[in-house]
Design a protein around this nucleic acid. Structure first.
Lengths: 333, 333
DNA sequence: ACATTTTATGTTACCGATAACATGCTATCC
DNA sequence: GGATAGCATGTTATCGGTAACATAAAATGT
């Protein structure tokens, strides 16, 4: 890589101006078909590679959409990202990904870093952000979409569902099937906002249905996963039988709990019901299958892409898209 | 966002030249502490955001490392990405991610797109690429790391393990525990190169140990996951008892197979052994736990980050890092 | 045949930061 | 006290495209 090949080189080879090359590369109709072909040809031969950095600089349009996710290692967030990623390509945008580790302070740091790349829009997971994050975004007037949890005070567009409503479905179902002594298995108080919203949803739904107070079971710091679900039940041991339903913050946690119940010899669903959240693959495959709610992770991503597309082409769009959540009955309840 | 705030604006506010502001922002020691503080202050007040695009353009260093993964929705690849992502921050690099969907043609398209962003290095998963991909990279002299599968003809550095060796461990273990009629459950012939390497590893290890020919069971097109593992066993039904061990291409597939065996009433491991690959969380939590091999997904990412760091600072490094794979015994074998 | 429109291409200036070089000013030394 | 070294800051040119405007050549109309 002694000297980099630029449009100028291609232009000289063909015998036209760099401007014509630039036009040809953007498939500008005003460049004659013949010239375009010659330019393509020469570019190919010279091994020219288009430089998006220069374009981003000159046009002040980066072609980037910045995305933050709590974790990439979560099948649901990954599905959302996939839906977004596959759909966004059409509008010529590229995604810049950052993982917050479920912490809004980390999110702030990430947003700061991502903003230096001049993204044309920002997609955040969740509706809670540090004041500095909010300020950074609003000062710039950057288009924002918040996804997953529908926020009370949105920054811009939002696409997702209500954790409380989704958990309400679960609790109603459990109550309808005669379960009364519910425990909620999730992260420790305060650590995970999404988890906290789900716990709150369970508690209020239980209260509304006249069930006894829900017992919160701390499964450790977020992100809680299979191991934590298993460990939480292992810690309880046979006293898990004090409950007749474990409402878990997510399917992985539910699966961990289910496996541990089997090890303990606690029969699911006869002695104990177990429910998850998110409709992960493990819930659909395990034996018995886990009762859960489908929150359309994939579709969230796809809808975000659609909204982005519309936003960037200046359309008027609904500010808030609630994709809802549907109960998926399994054999654990 | 009427007019964007630049270093010039900050410079004017403080009463210095833009160059001094530039130096201050890069923590250049030659700028006096007092001036630096005043610049920081003014930048803060004006809401100035550093523009990496301009820097990337001027210095011809993008600060990007491009990464391709087969899929983001795979706990192992996600872990590798996480390891890489968390370690790479130190060198000031940012990752640009693309997912190939396990297809080298898509990889080529992605690499093309990523190259327009002038990445300073490229990280590819796997050792098989289209000729065009290889050409694109070598012409540019772009530093490359191939990870996961150690390639026969590497493009540059490589960090990973041998699929064949790892599968060898599994087969040896099965053979040593008296299993003889092995089936390999994976993607259809040719579809998935990584899967094909694993199948080949099983077949040759079995041959070496004098076991009968291994039966290949097609679990569908890559990526094969839990559902596919379950469906493959469901399709076999009770004739699965013709085998005494199912060697699965991955833990999710093994878990699907295990669940389906339970539904069928086939006893694992008494009637049938099941093994996985990759040491996914589900293998460690399911009951029984699944025998698998740990390929150090997280560490692959971390090592790649280390190699990148060294590469970019011009150190001499080992060209090939084999992190090996270790057998993890579970209750399914 | 000449004016007018259309088509294809060229010219110029600029996006925001920074490398390389230049310079003014203040300590330090004998 | 004058020369020298060192520190802090300034000047200039530039990275590779492209918006906006300009223009030459060909096509069209009357």
């Amino acid at each position: 890589m002694i000297t980099r090949i630029t449009m100028r080189d291609v232009a000289e080879a063909v015998g036209v101006s760099p401007m014509t090359v630039s036009r040809a590369f953007r498939d500008d109709e005003t460049v004659s078909t013949k010239t375009r072909a010659r330019i393509r040809q020469a570019a190919q031969e010279l091994g020219y590679v288009y430089d998006s950095t220069a374009t981003a600089f000159r046009t002040q349009k980066s072609g980037f959409v910045a995305v933050t996710l709590p974790s990439i290692n979560n099948a649901n967030f990954a599905e959302t990202y996939r839906g977004l990623s596959e759909r966004i390509g059409d509008s010529g945008m590229q995604l810049l990904l950052g993982a917050t580790g479920y912490r809004i302070e980390k999110e702030e740091e990430l947003v700061r870093q991502l903003l230096t790349r001049n993204p044309e829009a920002l997609v955040l997971t969740g509706g809670h952000h540090t004041p500095a994050t909010r300020a950074l975004i609003t000062i710039r007037g950057l288009p924002v979409i918040e996804m997953w949890d529908l926020p009370e005070i949105p920054l811009g567009y939002s696409v997702g569902f209500s954790n409380a409503a989704a958990m309400g479905r679960i609790v109603e179902h459990l109550s309808a099937s005669g379960r009364r002594r519910l425990a909620f298995v999730g992260a420790a108080e305060g650590a995970d906002l999404r988890g906290a919203a789900r716990r709150a949803g369970v508690i209020s739904a239980a209260a509304e249905l006249g069930l006894p107070e829900v017992e919160p079971i701390d499964a450790g710091p977020a992100p809680v996963s299979m191991q934590h679900g298993a460990a939480a039940v292992a810690r309880l041991g046979h006293s898990v039988r004090a409950f007749d339903a474990l409402v878990c913050v997510s399917d992985p946690v539910a699966f961990g709990a289910l496996s541990e119940c089997r090890r303990l010899g606690v029969s699911v669903p006869d002695e104990l019901a177990i429910t998850g959240f998110g409709h992960f693959e493990v819930a659909a495959v395990s034996e018995p299958r886990i009762t859960t709610v489908d929150v359309n992770a994939r579709r969230i991503g796809e809808e975000v892409a659609r909204v982005l597309d519309g936003m960037l082409s200046g359309e008027e769009l609904a500010g808030r898209i609630d994709l809802g959540a549907s109960l998926v009955l399994g054999g654990t309840s």
